[in-house]
Write a protein that binds this DNA or RNA. Structure first.
Lengths: 251, 251
DNA sequence: TATAGTTGTCTATATCAATAGACAAATTTA
DNA sequence: TAAATTTGTCTATTGATATAGACAACTATA
């Protein structure tokens, strides 16, 4: 027999299209992120978690299994289940956002990897963002940001091809957008505007950011300009919400 | 027999803990939000959607049924399925963010409702944000922002009780944080910092923002200060990602 | 060395999610 | 009016999700 609860404890929703084990895994992740469970600390035993969330022990086990798979937890028979992962990185977004500078002190190793580059005609929104006519050639750089070996961002950046010919090579060589732009005489640039949204990770996000299905990504669409307001870069970036939060400072 | 596809089209993930119909509902919502389907336009027929996403027609029907339930779509037998809802609001976040001012032109009617208020000792993070000793009394205002009758934000704001005694009454009367602060001699205030994250909506969010289970909320935690840097308000706001995107401008 | 507490594995059952196919009902188009 | 298009409803089957209970395996501790 099944003892069906009418009201669930702690924000667990049934028949929502999101399985209970996934919801509980998200809750545990969130609890770790906000510091409810310290690093290396033992999680409450499975029966306690099952009671807290009003579900069967096996459902909790499914959630834990997913997080073990993700490398967030480690389960030891007879001892308990332990927290491995650290808190979320705080990624700054402001007028002078720079990848490495912003994460200083939070991760010992951080860098950007150039995954691919290509020349293509500007789409509608890229053209608008850069103030070009639609169809003008632009260079697209596909990059991934990593901190301590974990992917923390995945971005596409577009630059006017005529003005920034060779920026792909510069990026491959320097591993830095800032350094690459410096080669084109851009010593300073500002973030003009940023649109921010959130959605479930799609197949590309899962592969790019090493996420599990059901994860959430933050998406920013931004335009960088020179100090005198000339657009130089249009970008779309995706951040895994479980590993990164955004800190908005003076734009 | 079942013809199982190895690779799914368009970012649909199986065995993810998120059901296919929920993922497809999210995709349709996103497509509407970014303007792929115009308002009042017909959606592609169910068989076409099923093929596009690589799922059975009945699965698409489940997704559509959920969106009809949410009031996003209207299905008419023999004719088609039509888009009711408009694009996402673009909610500005910047140095001088004000609720009504920011949404001007995007919604014809907008206001803040005061849901509840109370006096309580400051928690750790509220005390830190306001620069108080932990346990000092603070006033908490629970509010909901609405635009054209739809909830677009749900916020809790904390103010030092000694300095802002009566701000709850002022808020109830004026329906505006800005106007209420003016009564305490605050003619201008700035957003000092904002932390931004995203997660699945919990039970409270579902009720407060009239969402369906599985929805995503954007969460901001911010501190407002006077022009000379004195903290006056600590706030946590939640925005439904399917209805709102955040526009970051000069902080 | 028992004993209690914890995770791991197994069986069984019920419900939800997804596929498959057929046909009805309503609308639009030729 | 007839045909084509589209949504609505029904049955059937399979696999994933969730509950239930029992017991094994391992660890720490009294």
């Amino acid at each position: 027999m099944v003892g069906q609860l009418e009201v669930e404890a702690d924000g667990i929703e049934r028949r929502s299209g999101v399985s209970l084990w996934r919801q509980i895994a998200d809750k545990i992740l969130h609890a770790i992120a906000i510091g409810d469970f310290a690093e290396n600390a033992a999680l409450p035993p499975e029966v306690a978690l099952a009671e807290r969330y009003g579900v069967n022990r096996h459902t909790v086990r499914s959630a834990i299994a997913a997080l073990v798979q993700e490398g967030v937890l480690r389960a030891e028979q007879g001892r308990g289940t332990f927290v491995l992962s650290r808190k979320r990185l705080s990624y700054p977004i402001g007028a002078r956002t720079r990848f490495s500078a912003g994460l200083q002190g939070q991760a010992s190793e951080r860098h950007i990897v150039l995954l691919a580059s290509s020349v293509e005609p500007a789409s509608q929104r890229v053209a608008e963002g850069l103030g070009l006519a639609r169809g003008n050639d632009v260079i697209r750089l596909e990059t991934r940001g990593e901190a301590d070996g974990r992917p923390v961002s995945r971005a596409a950046g577009w630059f006017e091809a005529r003005r920034f010919a060779g920026i792909d090579a510069a990026m491959a060589q320097t591993g830095s957008i800032t350094a690459s732009l410096a080669r084109f005489g851009i010593d300073d640039y500002l973030r003009q505007s940023t649109m921010l949204s959130a959605r479930h990770a799609d197949a590309a996000d899962l592969a790019d950011l090493d996420l599990q299905p059901g994860a959430i990504v933050l998406v920013t669409v931004a335009v960088n300009v020179t100090p005198d307001g000339q657009p130089i870069q249009f970008s779309e970036s995706r951040f895994p919400a479980e590993r990164v939060e955004l800190k908005l400072s003076a734009l």
